[in-house]
Amino acid sequence: MRVLFIGDVFGQPGRRVLGAQLPTLRGQADFVIVNMENAAGGFGLHREAADAALKAGVHCITLGNHAWHHKDVYVMMQDEGTYPIVRPLNYSDPGTPGVGWRTFNVKTAAGTEKLTVVNLLGRVFMEALANPFRAMDELLERNDLGTVFVDFHAEATSEKQAMGWHLAGRVAAVIGTHTHVPTADTRILEGGTAYQTDAGLTGPHHSVIGSGRDGPIQKFLTERPHRYGVAEGGPAELNGVFVQIEGGRATGIERYRYVEEG
């Protein structure tokens, strides 16, 4: 099984480059997972973005700390047959809408294989949710998950690396999201777990992690809050990883990056 994971889609530029490039990339993977928690103007997911992604060939949508920014997501989570959305697993409230993991039957050249996609939210410099390490330990007590692929949406690289080692040999992949800059630590950990600290941004190329440059620069210059918005104009980029999986464990991982001309 070959899985393509695409990092945080940011605003309209991210949606545009995803829609333009995914139909071609789709032929190189059996299953496509895309983090879309910044797809709607940089904050959250709305129906328009989800519909476009699914039309382009996305099989599963993961989220993060902006999961609840748009009311659309509450409605979409109730329509599991249409919207294959996975929000962070480690919300302790049993009444939290949606699901933190979802199992898919993936058609491959060798037949049909079971793949479970999990979304986790980190706690360092983030919201005080339940312990993601304990949440994964509890989930992995199940014996019906098949191959497990984890999107760990977290701020701290140390927390992401710790999760990678915690799950090494127990899941097929741990790929980080949230910080929007692709990292160069792509590797396979002990036991066949593909790992990368951050998959990177799918959005404006000439930006500060997706936002227009002036707002962040002025904040750092003046030490005062400034309004941020999605960077407009110029090329967009798409970042992700391809993971090759055999027998529930990764046998290969490759970074992928595309930048529009102009």
Rank of each mutant, 00 (worst) to 15 (best):
Y74W: 12
H46Q: 15
A53K: 02
A52D: 14
T116C: 09
D137E: 09
V75R: 14
D137L: 02
D72T: 14
A110P: 00
H46S: 15
Q78L: 13
V86I: 06
L121G: 06
G95C: 08
E141R: 15
N119Y: 02
Q161C: 14
F152E: 05
G100L: 01
V150C: 06
G81M: 10
Y83L: 08
A130E: 04
M126L: 09
G164I: 04
R123T: 07
A128Y: 03
S92E: 15
G146A: 09
H66N: 11
H153F: 01
N143P: 09
L120C: 06
L45S: 11
R134W: 06
R142G: 08
R102Y: 04
C60Y: 03
L45C: 10
G100N: 04
G100A: 07
M36T: 07
G122C: 02
R134L: 02
D72G: 07
V58W: 01
L167W: 06
W101M: 11
G164S: 09
M163L: 05
W101G: 10
L54G: 12
D151E: 09
V86E: 01
V73R: 00
G169W: 15
F104C: 09
L45W: 03
P132Y: 00
N105D: 14
T96H: 13
F43G: 15
T147H: 04
H59C: 09
H66T: 11
E159F: 08
L145Q: 07
R134M: 02
H70R: 15
L167I: 04
P94F: 00
S92F: 03
A168V: 03
T116I: 11
N38I: 03
M163E: 00
A130N: 12
E80Q: 13
T103W: 06
D93G: 09
V118T: 06
K71T: 15
G41Y: 00
N35Y: 07
K71G: 13
V86Y: 08
A109L: 08
A154M: 04
G81D: 10
S158H: 01
L139W: 04
Q161L: 14
D93Y: 11
L45T: 08
V75Q: 14
D137R: 12
N65E: 03
E48K: 15
G169H: 15
H46R: 15
A135M: 01
E48I: 14
L145P: 07
H59I: 05
V99G: 12
N105E: 13
K107Q: 05
V58Q: 08
A40Q: 09
H59D: 15
N119I: 03
D151W: 03
P97Q: 03
L54C: 10
D79C: 06
T108F: 07
R142E: 11
V171K: 04
W101A: 11
L115I: 14
L54N: 10
F152V: 10
W165H: 13
L120Q: 07
V75S: 13
E127M: 10
R47G: 05
G111M: 02
M163F: 01
I61N: 08
D79N: 14
E127L: 10
Q161M: 15
A67C: 12
K107M: 03
H59T: 07
R47D: 01
H66A: 12
W68P: 11
G100M: 03
A40S: 14
A50Y: 00
R134E: 00
A53C: 11
G57V: 04
N131K: 05
L140V: 12
N143C: 11
T147K: 04
F149M: 06
G44K: 08
E80H: 08
A53R: 00
